[in-house]
């Protein structure tokens, strides 16, 4: 589904990604862990097309097509979704209108008809329930005044609505209380399918207890320096990143 080779990117002249390789197959869940500032969010942003990053090398094929040449909205329409580490507030932009515009843009690009108002509301209610979110969020501006946890749940709610092929969850667990973590994890697990892949960025083993990954990668200084099965996460929790960095150096 996703094949990243030798990806290099700079921000304001500073090299952040330094030759990153990652292969994600259909239906797989990959966890990416790594120290603060190692480039995890940068990687997520570069994949989804955020401005301000200069790609200086490598490629990222999504279903065989080069992602890096596409506009952010085109990537989303092809089935890429990013759950932001820090979702932005959009004052004055009504949540329902936003969700409807997003869903219809994606449906139209897939050649599906736009949803009528009734079916749309029904779909939203159903997905809200999965994430234990209150209806009233729909009437408010997007993320505006939402609590940290509500913002994160709203991200997964959007993912549930938009049904992407590949979702990147950037620290969706941070800032969630224990109950919210379980709700979000249940929401994510409900979306698991042989056709849908996910990249889960996290600092904590705890999330991976709920969302079991097929692979765990360690990102440090802009490269994947270690990959393994889910047991790697446990080892990291125990020994810290210094352990691998030490091995690398050796």
């Amino acid at each position: 589904m996703l094949s990243v080779k030798g990806l290099k990117a700079t921000v304001e002249g500073k090299e952040i990604l330094r030759g990153l390789d990652l292969e994600v197959g259909h239906g797989e869940i990959h966890a990416i862990m790594g120290p603060n500032g190692s480039g995890k969010s940068t990687f997520a942003h570069v994949l989804s097309g955020r401005e301000g990053y200069e790609v200086t090398g490598g490629s990222a094929l999504f279903e065989g097509e080069e992602l890096l040449d596409l506009e952010p909205e085109e990537r989303a329409r092809k089935g890429l979704f990013l759950a932001f580490q820090y979702p932005v507030e959009l004052p004055g932009v009504n949540n329902t209108y936003f969700l409807k515009s997003a869903l219809n843009a994606i449906r139209t690009s897939r050649g599906e008809p736009e949803l009528d108002a009734v079916s749309f509301m029904r779909l939203m209610r159903e997905k809200l329930k999965v994430l234990h979110l209150d209806d009233s969020l729909l009437k408010r501006p997007v993320n505006f005044g939402f609590s940290g946890g509500e913002k994160k749940r709203n991200e997964i709610f959007q993912m549930a609505l938009l049904e992407p092929k590949l979702a990147i969850l950037d620290e969706t667990d941070s800032g969630l209380d224990i109950d919210a973590l379980r709700i979000v994890a249940d929401g994510v697990n409900a979306l698991r399918s042989p056709e849908r892949s996910m990249i889960v960025v996290t600092h904590y083993q705890r999330l991976l207890d709920y969302i079991e990954p097929d692979y765990v990668h360690v990102l440090a200084k802009g490269r994947i320096i270690r990959s393994g099965g889910k047991e790697l996460a446990l080892e990291l929790e125990e020994k810290g990143y210094g352990w691998i960095a030490g091995e690398e150096a050796a």
Partner: peptide, 22 residues
Amino acid sequence: MLFYLRSRGISAPLARRMLCLG
């Protein structure tokens, strides 16, 4: 904000419209 909207499949002109109307 613009990127957030576009990352959800919304075209840049529509995203701009939404933000300005907001």
